[in-house]
Design a protein around this nucleic acid. Structure first.
Lengths: 243, 243
DNA sequence: GAGTGGTCTAGACCACGAG
DNA sequence: TCGTGGTCTAGACCACTCA
């Protein structure tokens, strides 16, 4: 027997899918909807929580529940590509950059294979679509390779990427670790997503030919708007040898 | 101000982390815990829902809440490896295999680049650890490359993998698409996970040198027990050319 | 201040599991 | 049958947003 919560969630989902509730539109208040469906407010709120976790509805305290405008689904491209393609398809997005100087500690220090306390340049990238936050990337580069002063905040994202490629030795190996987790409270509020909407977390480690780590990147891609694709080509001499 | 739900969740999490609540142990009943923390049962249940979404607690209707024995965290290895390594590190897991014959339809047909209705061999792989389900893979191979009869159910997983490599042309290109989503109801019950615990979904498409798709695989890896790693090496001639 | 969502309560009734 | 979790109610009080 389907629960009332799911019944209501299904109905609202259908109303969104068929356009009877349009993107950006405010839903009736929770009290109103509860009366309409003849359920108590907690039950109605549970139904909304389902849609919220699916990324269909965004709630704002004091304002109401809104149908989310579908954000562009981006594809993070990894695998064997040229380094400048090694990024997201950010075509429809504008990226704001904020550069600061921090010190390596904990996980970050070991990722960069540097001692704790080493100076780093942190490049905080926040991708936006129509003023709405989309995804988040934190890039860390050893200070001696890219002094924070060189990457002034006023530079646009593309210029920063170009500048980094000029400043650093070419990458020889990239290791990307992908995991699924709930967003941290900061991520949830920065990205304006429900704390129940899982993110695709990419930890990327880039090394040069000498094995030195020249960049570590932590990406948080909300699961409702990001995929990752990796393509691998096998050489002839890599054929499996069944002995 | 932290909510009571989070305070309680934090406390229980701490009790689990410090071993005061041991893996496999049953928690006191919800009514008991509610009295202990002096909150109502819904509030306590919300706290448990947090731990459940983190994969720390498993609830069973009619029995109670149990501290989950930590399952091995496996790493799905993608990227440029030899094909037989192109798999999960399944060392601590036993895999049961179930082979059936199905017909390609919808997304599956387009993944395999075959017309709808084409006969396929479906290999359902369920990884277990100590009788407890861990992760799920569905592998689809065109029937002419691997007739279901050849892959009898009685074969162990390793034998099936070996058999497939013998039967098919060597893979030349692998495309892996990774996304985050909530489990389907079937996946949630098969894997015995909360429907709120997101899974890492890997859609893998393997083609031979002629471009024919020789395998499609759908993997569902619960987010609390799986990562994916991709390593890319750049050739010299792939250096970025900044003109 | 009016209206909204956020949190919580105290309890009801149902469904499942095990003896 | 008993104890467990699953679902739901009707309403309280607080915090936030906006006019």
């Amino acid at each position: 027997m389907p629960s009332r919560r799911d019944t209501i969630a299904d109905d609202l989902r259908d109303r969104i899918a068929t356009g009877r509730l349009k993107p950006g539109e405010r839903l009736p208040s929770e009290a109103h909807l509860a009366a309409q469906y003849m359920v108590s407010t907690p039950t109605l709120r549970n139904a909304l929580a389902v849609l919220q976790a699916e990324g269909l509805v965004e709630k704002t305290h004091g304002k109401g529940n809104f149908v989310r405008r579908p954000l562009h689904r981006i594809t993070y491209v990894g695998g064997r590509r040229t380094p400048d393609e090694h990024s997201m398809d950010l075509a429809p997005l504008s990226v704001t950059v904020h550069t600061t100087r921090v010190r390596a500690r904990g996980h970050l220090a070991s990722l960069l294979k540097m001692p704790t306390g080493s100076p780093l340049t942190e490049i905080l990238c926040l991708a936006h679509e129509d003023e709405r936050p989309h995804s988040l990337a934190r890039i860390y580069v050893p200070c001696d390779l890219a002094p924070a002063a060189v990457l002034r905040d006023s530079l646009p994202y593309e210029a920063v990427v170009t500048r980094l490629m000029e400043l650093r030795p070419p990458p020889a190996e990239v290791r990307e670790e992908i995991s699924v987790r709930l967003p941290t409270p900061e991520e949830a509020s920065t990205l304006r997503i429900s704390s129940a909407l899982a993110v695709l977390a990419v930890t990327r480690q880039t090394a040069d030919t000498t094995g030195r780590v020249i960049e570590a990147a932590l990406l948080a891609l909300p699961g409702d708007r990001a995929d990752a694709v990796f393509t691998t080509h096998y050489m002839i001499d890599e054929r499996p040898t069944n002995t």
